Computed example of a mutant assay.
Amino acid sequence: MGHDDLPMLELAFPGPERDRGVAAILNGEKTALTGLMEIYEHAGEAVPRTGQRFSVLDSEGRPAVTIEVVDVQVVPMKEIDDDFAHAEGRGYRDAKEWRAAHEEFFRSAGVSEFLGHTPVIDDDTLVVAERFRVVEADAPRDR
Rank of each mutant, 00 (worst) to 15 (best):
A64K: 02
V47L: 10
Y40G: 04
H86F: 08
D94F: 05
R107Y: 00
H3T: 02
E45Y: 13
T34F: 05
L57P: 08
G116P: 05
V111G: 11
A24T: 05
V120S: 11
P14H: 05
F106H: 10
V127D: 05
R93C: 02
A95S: 13
V75I: 15
P140R: 11
A32F: 10
L126H: 13
V74E: 10
G89T: 07
S108A: 06
V75D: 01
G116K: 06
R53T: 07
A85C: 02
D83E: 14
P16M: 10
F13A: 14
R143K: 10
E103W: 03
G28N: 09
D142G: 12
A43W: 05
G91Y: 05
A85L: 03
A85Y: 01
E88R: 08
V69S: 04
M8K: 15
F132I: 09
I121E: 10
A101S: 11
L11E: 00
R107D: 00
E60S: 12
V56R: 02
D123Q: 09
E130I: 12
H117K: 14
E10Q: 15
P7S: 03
L57V: 13
L6W: 06
E17R: 14
R18H: 02
F105L: 13
E60A: 15
G89R: 09
R93W: 03
V127M: 04
E104D: 13
D4E: 15
V69A: 09
G110T: 12
A23F: 07
V111P: 10
V128R: 07
V75F: 01
Y40R: 07
E45A: 13
M1S: 14
T50Y: 00
M37N: 09
S108F: 02
D83G: 11
T34M: 12
K78C: 14
H42D: 13
V56P: 07
I67T: 02
S108E: 01
F105V: 04
E88T: 08
K30Y: 01
H86Q: 13
E38N: 00
A95E: 02
A46Y: 02
R143V: 11
M1K: 08
M1L: 10
F114Y: 15
A32N: 08
H42Y: 13
D58P: 05
A137W: 02
F114Q: 14
E60F: 10
L57G: 06
G35P: 01
A129V: 06
L126R: 13
T125A: 06
A23G: 08
Q73L: 09
V74G: 04
D5T: 00
E130S: 14
R131Q: 14
A12F: 13
E29I: 00
M8R: 14
D5I: 00
R90W: 00
M1V: 11
G15M: 08
N27I: 10
E17W: 12
V72P: 04
A46R: 15
A87W: 10
G61N: 05
D5S: 06
A24F: 07
R53Y: 00
M8V: 11
